[in-house]
């Protein structure tokens, strides 16, 4: 089942007299349950592409269709609302809310979605157990290691039951052991619960795990390989 359809996507940054074309005509489709990595050198446009997929940035030209919704036409609070209901984010620097515990961070989006307390409690506990943090639910981010914080971030991204999860360089700040643990968890969630993951990465370990590798260079897709 098609989750994302991107047609002729362009993004040009107007920086005074210089115009920078970060994305130049990308056409791409993502199916439900994909475990895809977008790779490419720095400045190739992969993060810009990912930001547009997540509705954090708007395309200069082209279309983004997520589950039948034309995201490229959305703006303001409607777009924020759409993100909350449909997209999960995992950031490079974890970006948890420092004053909330691990469980409260996971609950945060569910509160925005106005879920009941019982629903929130149950799901937050389930997700934290799933990422191996059942015993650290009440710890604040400052009391967790980088790997643990990133696992909380994955649980937070899953909390809203999104259509897909976008992860921008999720392992960039992690050591090998934490990276391996995190990738195993994400792979398990992908396989067992058919959750779509889309990464932008430089990390060979992520590339190795990914079942689809999209290579971007100078704002264009130069290869799109699927592993059997």
């Amino acid at each position: 089942m098609k989750v994302i359809e991107v047609k002729n996507l362009h993004k040009t940054y107007d920086e005074g007299e210089v115009k920078v074309e970060a994305v130049r005509g990308i056409d791409l489709t993502f199916e439900q349950g994909e475990f895809a990595a977008i790779v490419g050198p720095s400045g190739s446009g992969k993060t810009t592409f990912l930001n547009m997929l997540g509705g954090l940035d708007t395309p200069t030209k082209g279309e983004i269709d997520i589950d039948g919704v034309k995201v490229h036409n959305m703006k303001g609070s409607a777009l924020i609302d759409f993100r909350m209901k449909n997209i999960g984010f995992v950031f490079q620097a974890y970006n948890l809310i420092p004053v909330l515990s691990a469980k409260e961070n996971v609950e945060f989006i569910m509160r925005l979605q106005k879920m009941t307390k019982i629903e929130r409690d149950t799901r937050a506990e389930e997700l934290l157990k799933a990422v191996g943090l059942g015993d650290r639910m009440n710890s604040r981010p400052s009391k967790l290691s980088g790997g643990q914080q990133q696992r909380v971030a994955v649980a937070r991204a899953l909390a809203s039951k999104p259509k897909f999860i976008l992860a921008d360089e999720p392992t960039a700040n992690l050591d090998s052991k934490s990276t391996e643990t995190l990738l195993d968890i994400m792979e398990k969630l992908n396989k067992e619960e058919n959750i779509t993951f889309i990464f932008s990465t430089h990390d060979a370990r992520v590339v190795k795990k990914a079942r689809r590798i999209i290579t971007v260079e100078d704002g264009k897709i130069i290869s799109d390989e699927r592993k059997s």
Partner: peptide
């Protein structure tokens, strides 16, 4: 600023 950005990114209205 970064924290606010993340909160808005994940779906909190400004």
């Amino acid at each position: 600023k970064r924290e606010f950005g993340v909160m808005v990114a994940v779906g909190m209205q400004k």
